[in-house]
Every structure is written in C-alpha cells, then in structure tokens.
Design a binder for these strands. Structure first.
Length: 701
RNA sequence: GCGCGCUUAGCUCAGUUGGUAGAGCAUCCCGUUUACACCGGGCAGGUCGGGGGUUCGAGUCCCUCAGCGCGCACCA
C-alpha cells in the first residue's frame, strides 16, 4: 500500500500535479484519445463549446458551476468512448470590458473621452490579455478538461474577419439595414444599448397633468415637451369625436403660443389619463412609432450628453435632471399645471451597468431584421431539433422568438469588432476594405452578442477550418438560464442562417449560484463568494460536488460553505475506503461467492441507474446516488461486514470478498471521476487496476 | 398587464414515467472495538403552502386561492 494513504487526503498538494499530468498527457485533445477507448463509439465526436468567460476579471461562483457541469459531461462522454471536445474560449466582452476599464480610468483620474481611440483600444487590449491569462489559470484550477490547443478568443484575427463577413453576407441578403430609429442611449457610457443591456425598474415618479389648449395631457417627463405640437387621441374616443384628424389649433405652451395638430391614432389608450397625449417622437419609442405612421416631423430636444437643445430657449443647456422642476414651475406660473400625482408608478429603463436612466434617442444604426431569422429558430424547435433542459425553457425561447424585435448591433465604443460598413453621399456599402475614394468608414463596433452569437461556428472554424464539420454542430450548449434570450437564440439563428443546422441539439440551462440563504450575490451586499477561496480551503472536488448535488437543472442554488466542507470529508472517505481495501484485501481474481455476487448485482444496478441519469442530464441525481452508495452502503455496511471475513479463516470467502472490493473500488472511482476528478485520479494511480489515466479509462458497464 | 418558476424536517434542497416521504448541515444521546474523529451507532423532527378535483392510489396530474422570486411590456 502506498504510504500516502496513512495521511488524510491533501487536495492542495495533489491537484496542481494531477492537472499538469493530464495536460501533458495530451488527452484533453480528442484527436489524441487512445484507440481502444474510442472503439466503444467508433470514434464519434462529442462537443461542448465553452461559453467564453469575459476576460476582464476573476471567475465567480457561476463560472465554477458551469465549468463543473461541462467538465462532468465532457469527462463522462470521454469515458464512454466519444472523441470528447470541450473547446475553451475567452470573450473580449465589448461593452462589459469597456465599462470595467472605464472604472479603472476613473480611479486613475482619467477618462476615455478625449483619448485617441487607437490608444484606448490598445490599453484595453493589454488589460484584457492580462486578465485572460489569469482567467485561464483559474479555469485550469477547477479541473477543466478542455482542449487548450483549440482555445479561441473573440478578437482572434480569423474570428474578427469571419464576423465581419457575416455582416457583409447579411447586408447582401437584406437582413441588416441602416435605420434611423429609436435606440436606448446611455448618457454616461455614450453609446446605444440593446434591449437586453437595459433593466426595467419600477419607480414612483410624479405624474403631471397640464393644460394644452382645450385638452389636458399627462406626462412624467415635462422636460421633453418643448417640441410637442401634435396632440393625439384614439379615433374611437367619443369624448373627442368633434376633433378631426389633421385639424390645427393654437395653444399656449411652455415658451409661448404654438400651432398644434390633432392626430388620431389607436395606439392611444382611452382608459389612461384623459385619453389625450402629446408626442415627443425623438425621445419616446411609442411616440416615434406614431410619428412614423403619420409621417410627422421629429426634432431632437435633448443632446447626447443629456442637456436641453436651443429649442428649449431659456432652458437650453440645462441638464434634464435639473430642468424638470424649473419647467414645471414655469408651467405652474402660466396656470397650465392642472394636477400632480405624486404616487404614480412608472417603469424606468436603466443601463444595466451604471443604472443611468436610459434616454430614447433617434439614431442612425445598423439593425438586424429579426422576423425571418427568428422564424427559422421557431421551426427548428418545432421540428424537435433543439431540446431544452429543463423543458419549460422552450416556452421562454419560443415567446422570445415569436416576439423578436429588430436588433440594434451598433455600439459607439472602441472595444469591439469594427463594423465593415462605408458611407458616401448617404449610400452605405458593406465591405472589408474601402469601396473606393471618398467612402467613410463607420466608426462603430458590433454589439458583443453579434460575435458571440456565432461562437459555435467560429470555434469550429466555419466555413472551412479543419474542425468543420467534424466538431460542428456541437452537442450540448450548457449555460446560465439568464442567457436563454440573450445568447441562446442568437446562436441558434446564426447557426441556422450560416450552416443550415442548429449549432447544438441540447440546451442545458443552470440556475444562479446564490449565497447561503438563497440571496443573489452582489458586491454591494458583500455576500460574494469567491470559488477559489473555497477550493483552497476544501479542495476542488469538494466544491464541484457541492455545486452539483441537489442542484436540479434550471433552479438556483444556495452555496453554503458547510456543504462544501461535507464533500471534503467525502473525498477523504474515499481515501480511507481505499486504504482499508489495500490493507485488508489481497489482490484476487477469485470467482465470487453467492453473497458477493448479490453485492455485485446491487452495484451493477447502481451503475445502470447512474448511467441513465447521466444520459438524461440528471447529474445531480447521479452524484447523490454515488455518494450514498460509497458512504452509506460500501463503507458503512459492506466494509464493516468485511472485517470479520478478513479476520476469519475462510480463505475462499476472503478471496471472493477481495475480488469484489477491488473491482467495485475501481468502478466506483470511474463513476465518480467526472464529478471528483482529482481525488479519484490520485487514488487510481495507486491501485492495482490502474492501466492508463482514469480520465481515459472506460466507463463501467 | 402578460409570462415563467418556487412554496417538502430548524436551515439549504432532492424526489426521473403518480405506487407506503429523502439527503446534507444543525440539534440531542452513545461510542475511540482502529480504514477514516475529515469517524461510527442511535434518537427526534414533515397533515409535502390552503382548498377542490381526477385516480384503487397524488409531493408528483388538473382547477383554484395565497405568499415569495424572476422575466417581459410603447399606458404617455
């Protein structure tokens, strides 16, 4: 028996050594897997594309969860004889990273505004590459058996070029268009944002009712109302039936009399307020749509920094935050303020990074025409080409695809992939290089989801790389349920659009990792758990088990330190089970007696049960069953019952029990390996059954 | 407003197609007879949120109500 079993299992001393050995072995690369292992599937591929972590900081508990789940699937399939590829990556994370970097600049008393764009880009690139190394080291420490030789970065030159070519193809296919439309504008970050980059918050805002000629109109935003010269009501509203569409009238307004025009539009809710509203098309989505329907002119009231433009006359140059009370005061003095409801509940859109109130602004941007693409995605789901785990997420996916709105892919930030579009005299062309003299390049960059949406294709080298189509489509997309409408649909759409097939057949969605009381982790609450602190204290295997057991797909998890501690004890339990067997059971290939055959049968049923769980993505069940068997069946009962046998004189019984224990230990280590790769590999290296690494040993039958 | 999810032992959660309620941690009692005190043995603890229905049988399926959480939405 190896002397090491006389001391408790020491994860810290073991894990780096084991990971190094795995990496050296080359088996993370599916092209190097042993032929006898692959024989089981005749070399079929199994591919998971890693959701590329943002290369802008440390890994958090959510990363630890997805790395654990994906590594379990990869290791399981590898042991089942698949050419298992888990392809790692790193995301430049456009806006996210730029926000992180801007905070860093702020701390240094600097600002991105006024910086040379190329200089800023280079600084962020250096920062990102440094973080990327850090991130990769952390992924390794969690035991990820991914193929580093294939690692991709979203700013690799070939990735950038392919992303740009996709845009060009979409431009030629009429799936992207240049549109002057309402966008979500963040004053702090000076960029437009997609709908998924904003959050809604319900807030209590004063609701003002003003006299507008013969009408009363309601608003929460008096500061936008300078240019309001269209008064809108529902065509069926009996109260206003005497007012005709297009009719004009003189009204006294903020800065004097104006000529207003009556517009009838069914977008107006008759039940709300007085049923009459004025519109500010430049700064409201719904007003914009009404204005479009009636071909009304629109004018910008607030500039890109949040200050009132000259149309506001005496208020020009004032920040809208400060302008509101002043304007209300003026309207009140003019006798135009009818009432104020101080308890009005209103939904306000905010920037998901800085919580700045989002301003609708009208801007020329590139939009993806979503309807035809989304229809393809719905068809694929209807045909059963994509399965969701848990399956209720299919409804959410479907809802999102059936209500898809056109996607703004232009960002006014430097940190991203440049949009290959050129403009001359109002005409736009899409091209990698300038179409000729006088063409001006679009300065904007792509929304980061435009590139990450193509990730499964890009990692496989679409359309002509050596891994395409060997490792495309991939098998499982494992990611957080919060990405069900941010990332997953975009991957499905790009996969179908570019390759005519979905990029994966299964979408496995995990929940959030919360704190011990089920509360969302946040820096401001101070309840953030650093996964590496836990692995340093209890070992990586312990953390992995704590993240998996009892964590049903799609549901959130409360991560408690005592749970991690419990599985550290379990790793040690395996250690001591091994010690007992090595000390007491001489190696034997004796035929099993009746008692031991029954034990073997019981174990075989466990193997079958666990295998089914794994095939059905019930990793949480499999892990718990293995834990129960190892501790409360094998250790508590079978080993205890073995003691008198080994102390006795019945040599046949000893031989039989020894044979059973050795084979069961070997198989149990194999079954546990995907969950607890380090301790199982370390034990495996010291038992008689060992041939090659446990990582490339066949899954028990 | 629409949609989704959750409500099971003190805490955190499992419970695959409906078949006599489970785990970990915590608590309490006992134990060092040596694989392991990073341990072992044992006790206690739940009318599975309320109500109704389908069924021979429901934590599991259906309806309804309540509470909590989350997402979506152009009510100015």
């Amino acid at each position: 028996m190896d002397e090491k079993f006389k001391k408790p299992y020491d994860p810290a001393a073991t894990e780096p050594r084991i990971y190094e050995a795995w990496e050296q072995s080359g088996y993370f690369n599916p092209d190097n897997l042993p032929a006898d292992l692959l024989a089981a599937t005749e070399g079929k591929a199994f591919t998971i594309v890693m959701p590329p972590p943002n290369a802008n900081g440390n890994l958090h508990a959510g990363h630890a969860l997805f790395i654990t789940l994906e590594d379990i699937l990869t290791r399981y399939k590898r042991m089942r004889g698949y050419r298992s590829l888990w392809l790692p990556g790193a995301d430049h994370a456009g806006f996210e990273t730029q926000v992180v970097y801007e905070k860093k600049l702020e701390k240094e008393g600097r600002s991105r505004f006024g910086m040379d764009p190329q200089e800023l880009y280079n600084e962020i690139l250096a920062f990102t590459l440094e973080n990327k190394k850090n991130m990769e080291a952390q992924v390794r420490s969690l035991g990820a058996s991914c193929d580093w030789s294939r690692e991709k970065f979203t700013l690799d030159p070939d990735v950038v070029e392919k992303v740009q070519k996709t845009f060009i193809k979409m431009f030629e296919d009429g799936l992207v268009y240049r549109g002057k439309r309402t966008v979500n504008w963040c004053y702090k970050h000076q960029t437009s944002l997609s709908d998924v980059e904003t959050e809604n918050s319900e807030e209590v805002t004063p609701f003002y009712t003003f006299r507008y000629g013969p009408f009363e109109i309601g608003t929460v935003r008096p500061e936008t109302k300078f240019g309001d010269k269209y008064v809108v009501m529902h065509p069926d509203d009996a109260r206003y039936k005497d007012w005709k569409h297009g009719q004009t009238l003189e009204v006294e307004w903020i800065n004097g009399p104006i000529t207003a025009t009556v517009i009838k539009d069914s977008a107006v809710d008759m039940e709300f307020g007085t049923g009459v509203m004025t519109i500010t098309p430049w700064h409201s989505q719904i007003d914009f749509e009404i204005a479009q329907r009636h071909s009304l002119p629109m004018e910008q009231i607030i500039d890109w920094r949040g200050k009132l433009l000259p149309i506001a006359q005496e208020f020009a140059g004032i920040n809208i935050r400060d302008a509101r009370p002043k304007i209300v005061e003026k309207l009140k003095e003019k006798g135009l303020l009818v009432s104020v409801d101080e308890n009005y509940k209103n939904v306000v859109k905010r920037c998901y990074k800085c919580q700045t109130v989002i301003e609708p602004q009208v801007k020329d941007q590139w939009f993806v025409k979503m309807a035809p693409l989304a229809a393809m995605a719905v068809t694929a789901v209807n045909k059963g080409d994509i399965r969701f785990i848990p399956d209720n997420f299919e409804k959410i996916f479907r809802y999102w695809m059936e209500n898809a709105i056109d996607w703004n892919i232009s960002r006014q930030i430097v940190w991203g992939i440049s949009i290959p579009a050129w403009e001359k005299d109002g005409e736009w062309r899409a091209s990698l290089t300038s179409p000729g003299e006088g063409w001006v390049k679009d300065e904007d960059t792509f929304d980061t989801w435009f590139s990450s949406g193509q990730w499964p294709l890009l990692t496989a080298g679409y359309p002509n790389g050596s891994d395409f189509p060997t490792y495309y489509p991939s098998d499982v997309m494992e990611t957080g349920h919060d990405l069900i409408f941010k990332w997953v649909p975009r991957m499905v759409i790009f996969g179908l659009y570019l390759s005519d097939q979905p990029p994966f057949h299964t979408v496995y969605l995990h929940g959030l990792v919360n704190d011990a009381h089920g509360k969302k982790m946040s820096k401001s609450k101070g309840n953030v758990v650093n996964p590496l602190d836990l692995t340093n204290k209890y070992g990586t295997d312990a953390l992995r088990m704590a993240l998996v057991v009892g964590n049903a797909p799609g549901t959130d998890l409360a991560l408690r330190e005592d749970k991690v501690k419990g599985y550290k004890h379990f790793a040690n339990k395996l250690w001591n089970i091994t010690r007992f067997i090595l000390e007491n059971a001489p190696v034997s290939d004796a035929t099993l007696n009746e008692t031991d055959l029954a034990l073997q049968q019981e174990f075989k049923e466990l193997v079958a049960d666990v295998t089914t769980d794994m095939d059905e993505y019930r990793m949480h069940m499999a892990a718990e069953k293995l834990y129960q068997y190892a501790w409360h069946r094998l250790a508590d009962v079978i080993l205890e019952e073995s003691k008198p046998i080994f102390l006795g004189t019945d040599e046949a019984a000893k031989a039989s029990r020894s044979a059973f224990l050795h084979s069961t230990l070997a198989d149990l280590l194999a079954l546990l390996h995907p969950f607890m790769p380090f301790v199982t590999e370390e034990i495996w290296s010291s038992i008689p059954a060992k041939k090659n690494y446990l990582m490339v040993t066949a899954w028990p039958k």
